[in-house]
Design a protein around this nucleic acid. Sequence first.
DNA 1: GCCGTTTTCGGCCCGACTGTTTTCAGTCG
Length: 594
Amino acid sequence: MHRANGDRIPGRRQHLTVTPKTRLLDQLKKMAVLMELDGANPFRVNAYTKAVRALGDETVDVEQAVREGTLTRIDGIGKGIAEKVEEFVRHGLIAEMTEFSAKFPPGVVEMTEIPGFGAKKARAVFGELGVTTVEELERACRDGRVAELKGFGAKTADKIVQGIASMRKHSGRFRIDVAWETAQPILKALRGHDAVERVEVAGSLRRWRETAKDLDFVCATTKPGDVMEFFTTLESVDTVTGQGPTKSSVVLDTGMSADLRCVAPEHFPFTLQHFSGSKEHNTALRGLAKRKGMKSSEYGLFPEGSETSLPATEEADIYRHLGLAYIEPELREDMGEIEAAAKGAMPELVTAGDVRGLPHMHTEYSDGQPTLDAYAKWAAQNGIGWMGISDHSKTASYAGGLQPDRVRKQWAEIAKVNKEWKDSGVRLLRGIESDILGDGSLDYEEEMLKEFEFIVASVHSQFNLTEEEQTARMLKAVENPYTSILGHMTGRLLLKRDGYRVNQKEIVRRCAAEGVIVEINSNPARLDLDWTLVRFALDEGCCLCVSPDAHTLGMLEHMRYGIGIARKGWVTKDRLANCWSADEFLAFVRKRRP
DNA sequence: GCCGTTTTCGGCCCGACTGTTTTCAGTCG
């Protein structure tokens, strides 16, 4: 089994900085769990879950919505939850939440995170046995008390113990690169099996979400038993956690769970569509089907009263039956794609094949490993016309930032390499990733700045400024006429560190007005700009670029994740600088220089 | 608790798997 550089992502989130919004979302999530424990109306619980999702969208500025009284304009936020949000923003807590919390110890809430152990069971062990922590629950399972409870048994007790172990070992989500690299060899193995007619990875990986909880494979076969046997005995499978006639679940050696669903070939498009999600997209789609007198499930699309599904050989057929244009998997988030498909107004998303140039990469001059020549060679071999070299600037001493003499030396070498690779149509561009200094200025004197062909401006220090200070600092950098690209907007490290506090929407708007290109950083630890803001940036009129931010040649492969995020943000090739020629890119950059 | 081009009340997507039951509840996606 191929591991992603061996670097499994620790499950527990470690927040260096936790934003008020993150705290609010945590509170609302906890509220949903507490209400469920309390036996509240499940639809009421679901309303809270939906609200967390609605507010979690990066483009939603909760505090602003509270100030302007526009919370209830957000789909999924009504009067009740709006009041809770306002209460939290004003007072830092929700009174009703405090009341609920008093009824259930924190350990009971934590129990609901055990796989296969939900609120009903947690309520039972707490109410019947007085168990208040995960540790006590484990003991109660081992000494037989849990097995005696009504609705429980020996097997349930065993499963709980296993679930607790699993939660401790690797809780939570995995970065998209871990998911992708885990999935590829399994896909390849399944494709090589005689009984497999079609197989795809579905779920959040197919939609290019930045993190995934597990892998979902969907397979067309007439011999599900054979395929399932093959799947559950793959070398990379650690334990088999479930196996029925059409579905198996396993835990892989990377710690990720994976499900395989096997269906008859005629069901395949429906099943693939169903398990590609998102849940929200499918819920909306089923609602639409219902209004059109059809029932939609993973087995077909059934006209009312009919046992026979409408035919489909591809997912596009399903959407067509519903009166919709085909919706690419990346867009299936119930964020307007269904409405656009109904109007036939789907964007033609950028593809990897449209890419002609790569901005933002580091060489041996600063903290990168490749030579300039190695990049040029790679470009020639991969049909890339231009590469924007951008090592760290002088203030970034921790990363070998370039002093002016080193900059000049690199310029000379770039000229030499360009001459050597001219016939291959490859051109390296003289750039720099300039630190944005504390006061918002760039890192060299103007005489030097104007000699760079392009400049990526990024924040690498002073993460703890207030939102106002950080925003002002970045706005100043955006307004600098030598800034071409604004690098990783928030500095977030997925599953590790929240981004610095900054008003992203305001900065995006200024980039649009100033003609500064907004970066989508392809590093799978970053994927920053967030995809929800990518779409916002497009709507505001921005141009974007997907940056490899490579420090090795291998990291150029990260472009696949950045392109995935661009597609997820509805980006078309005319708005992505990577799809322009070097001359077009440089002309765009020069427009705003004095 | 949310929501409304059949609605301001009465719905709220649908099915697989497991372990407990002997027809179903809980959990998950």
